[in-house]
């Protein structure tokens, strides 16, 4: 069984959704970002999405753009990402890399898969790679047994929900709203509908919801219908404003939230 699916199933066995924290490598610097990820895990994150800095993050809003720009300028690269992967695994969470496609292609798809598996990574989330263009990544991830997480969106047709979920392993990332990353005051009503449609396309695949969740109450709301709750910009905001302690506190709040969600055990 995949490392991600196993951890999400473990949460489900406790009658709750999994908490997935996103933080980018290299902000404020590489050791500081690893410290923040460790704090997120200590506060209760089950899975850490380890962000690979990229110069052209087309799916990210201003909060993430600004910190990632710092890391890009500092020359943070895949070696730093792999160090973060090992640190998150040692802290007890499941590490999954989140990367736009070009940094992976530049590093070498096969080399990336081999090195990520060796560092203890579970797999990768690829926000601008759709399965249609992913032949090399499908091969490489199969070869070393890595998970691969693609995205579905409210605009995805039924046919694409089927083909995308069929290419996923670990979980599928349901991008709950049409738009870029960033905290929102309310969770979009389209999220639950998207989860329902995605489940209809792939009954056995965990569906985790991202885009817009910022606090424990919103996490509880999403946890009521999703297998995992993905939080990104709120973690970045906490790190920028309050350092690792604020990250830990946010994790505690969110971890309580995913336990309040009235999830019906599968």
């Amino acid at each position: 069984m995949s490392a991600l699916a196993e951890r999400i199933a473990g949460a489900r066995a406790e009658g709750r959704a999994a908490l997935i924290a996103y933080l980018p490598v290299g902000y404020p610097d590489v050791p500081g970002s690893i410290e923040a990820m460790t704090a997120a895990v200590e506060g209760g994150a089950d899975i850490v999405e380890i962000g690979v800095p990229y110069s052209d993050p087309g799916m990210d809003g201003p909060t993430i753009q600004e910190v990632v720009e710092v890391a890009v300028r500092a020359g943070v690269g895949m070696r730093d990402v792999l160090a973060a992967v090992s640190a998150v695994a040692a802290a007890g969470a499941v590490p999954v890399v989140m990367s736009y496609w070009n940094p992976i292609e530049r590093y070498g798809v096969d080399r990336f898969a081999t090195d990520l598996a060796a560092a203890g990574g579970a797999g990768a989330i690829t926000p601008d790679l759709v399965p249609d263009e992913a032949a090399a990544w499908l091969d490489a991830s199969d070869r070393v047994g890595l998970d691969r997480v693609f995205l579905v969106a409210p605009s995805s047709t039924e046919a694409r929900l089927l083909s995308t979920t069929a290419a996923c392993r670990g979980f599928v990332y349901a991008a709950s709203t049409m738009g870029v990353t960033g905290t929102r005051s309310t969770v979009s009503g389209t999220a639950e509908q998207l989860v329902t449609r995605t489940r209809a396309a792939a009954a056995d695949l965990a569906v985790c919801v991202g885009l817009g969740v910022s606090d424990g109450d919103q996490a509880a709301e999403v946890a009521a219908f999703a297998d995992g709750v993905i939080v990104g910009s709120a973690y970045v905001r906490a790190l920028v404003d309050g350092g690792p302690e604020a990250v830990r506190a946010l994790s505690v709040d969110l971890a309580a939230g995913v336990r309040r969600g009235q999830r019906v055990p599968a």
Binding site: G58, L129, V130, D132, E133, A153, P154, S155, S156, A175
Partner: peptide
Amino acid sequence: AGGHFGVYGGRFVPEALIAA
């Protein structure tokens, strides 16, 4: 049909844009 010029081109975009 997928917009490939030899090995170039294609679509490397978020799923949200595929429908459009």
